[in-house]
Amino acid sequence: MKLLTVSGSPHIHGGLSVEKVMWLVVAAMAPAMLASFYFFGMGAIKVTLAAVLSAVLFEYLITKFIMKQKSQLGDGSAVITGILLAFNVPSTLPIWMIVLGSLMAIGVAKMSFGGLGKNPFNPAIVGRVFLLISFPVQMTSYPIIEKVFPMQDAISGATPLGIVKEGLKKGDSVSSLMDQIPSFTDMFLGMNGGSMGEVSAFLLLLGGLFLIFKKIITWHIPVSFLASILIFSGIFWLINPEVYVNPLFHLVTGGVMLGAFFMATDMVTSPMTGKGQLIFGAGIGILTIIIRVWGAYPEGVSFAILLMNAVVPHLNNAFKPKRFGKEMKNV
């Protein structure tokens, strides 16, 4: 007689899988990736390919030879780390450097904690920060996009954030610096020097909204992150607009959109509940502005995310979901 399967309830499953989640994230990043290919050409394609392939290869080798476990490459998380790492570097970065960055991201930040789901810090950001502090020159020399900067002589290779940072240090006024960078609308659409994935805030926003629509991420982190950037930098701007930059500038430049929708929202390294996520996002926003305004680096999103990653276990403990019957309306 045929034996029936016996198992605990429930007996049906909603069909969402890790693979589906990860490949949807890849799909959401695709427009910004294609834009980086368009703006930066072959260099971008090479660096992205190298980042993705090396991330996948390192994960495979470590799972097989060090952890001696069944490979979970099909889940696509290594591909995401690779793309995100490439998004965070200039297209002119030497290939060996991006491979080294991949090794740090996958080997150190992800697999040493036990692989997918176990890492406390966002692997791609660990990779980027490692590269930034080890190879500051290569990591901050950005190719000049002719469509973007008509006055290329004056500002060769710096990002708008870098231009503003340097200018303010020298004592230039904000208004004079604003003439040296593209308009906010141009920067929002992609007319923006910088890392490969940071060029088009608009396409990143589009991908992010797609993820929210698909219920892969929720609105909490992006909204609180972006809002805290606006509010925190807005306060200083209102105090003195000649020393502190317009909050909208902070919103459309650098890694803010990338961070808000793709890096800070990484499920593994962000809090589980809405309330925790709101605090998490607000913390990233405030830290970003502190680093941008007073720090040594022009950009602070990655540092801010890493710092807040460290706080996640506490946020999870402090902000429990609303329990049923806690706020009772008993008779």
Partner: peptide, 26 residues
């Protein structure tokens, strides 16, 4: 084909279980 459970993967800490729990548990 629907009788067997799917392969168990690592928890990716997505928090969906917490979101759908009708008792507000984790």
């Amino acid at each position: 084909e629907e009788s067997k459970r799917h392969e168990v993967k690592n928890c990716i800490r997505c928090g969906k279980c917490t979101t759908v729990c009708p008792m507000g548990l984790e």
